Computed example of a mutant assay.
Amino acid sequence: MPIKKITKIALFASILSVLSFISIPIGTVPITLQTFGVFLAGLLLGAKEGAVACLVYILLGAVGLPVFAGGRGGLEVLIGPTGGYLISFPIAAFILGKGVNFKNRILDLLIVILCVFFIYAIGVPYLKYVTGMDFDKALKIGMIPFIIPDIIKTVAAYFISVEVNKRINIRL
């Protein structure tokens, strides 16, 4: 892999790590800027590199570095209540990198918003399974409070990506 790609992947893994520290605990699942970073990675790096950046981030956390929300790290976070959300990140970045082409804004925004719900589709059932709570409670704890903030973050990531791509073609 060329050094330029490795550098961009490392940069976005670092960005994800920093954005994870911005965390507001509201219960089992905190509000963070992780999804903002995931969406930037997928939109700016493309499918493969965006997914790899998210995987690197997850691996850094899995080995114990304090890169997850609230400065946490370790496998216990991945097998804990929020692990499903983390596991969904590389797939969401890949989908964004493949699906968004910056030519049809309406279709692009639809893909971006659907990716928010893809993260919930993995995270909420995982939260339910790990905690043993019923599905309605998992929805109330792991999705409902986050829908509007997550859509705002991901739409912002899209428009930032549009501007960055106008100025520099980061996907080179």
Rank of each mutant, 00 (worst) to 15 (best):
M133I: 13
P2G: 14
I91V: 07
G27V: 02
G84D: 04
K8F: 13
L114W: 07
I113Q: 04
I147A: 08
A157Q: 02
G70I: 02
G80P: 09
K140M: 15
M133K: 13
P25R: 11
G50I: 02
P30Q: 08
P81H: 14
G132W: 14
A69S: 14
I160G: 09
P125F: 06
D150K: 00
L65F: 11
G27C: 08
V63C: 00
F36V: 05
L139K: 06
S20M: 13
A92Y: 01
Y158V: 10
V162L: 15
I79T: 15
T82Y: 12
P145I: 11
S17W: 14
R171L: 05
G123D: 05
P66M: 01
G80M: 09
P149S: 04
V67T: 10
L172S: 13
F36R: 07
I122R: 05
Q34L: 10
I24Q: 15
C54T: 07
E76A: 12
V116W: 05
I168F: 07
S88N: 04
G97V: 05
E76S: 15
L16S: 07
L75H: 03
V164F: 09
T32N: 12
P125G: 08
L78Q: 06
L45R: 04
G46H: 13
Y120K: 07
V18F: 12
I31W: 11
L33S: 08
P30S: 10
I106Y: 13
L65D: 06
P66E: 03
F21T: 00
G50S: 03
G80S: 12
C54R: 01
L40H: 04
I79C: 05
I87H: 05
I15V: 15
I111R: 08
F146H: 05
K4I: 13
A121C: 09
A51C: 07
A47C: 00
K153E: 03
F94T: 00
T7D: 01
V100R: 14
I79Y: 12
V38K: 06
I144K: 00
L16E: 03
L96R: 00
V77C: 06
G50Q: 04
A69N: 08
S20P: 10
T35Q: 11
G123P: 04
A156S: 13
T28H: 11
S161F: 01
V116T: 15
D108G: 12
F159M: 10
T154Y: 07
K98F: 09
D136Y: 10
V130I: 15
R171K: 15
A156Y: 03
G83V: 05
A10Q: 09
L110R: 14
K128A: 15
G64H: 03
Q34F: 06
L19M: 11
K103M: 00
S17H: 12
I147G: 01
F39M: 14
K166P: 08
G46W: 11
A138Y: 01
G99D: 05
T35G: 12
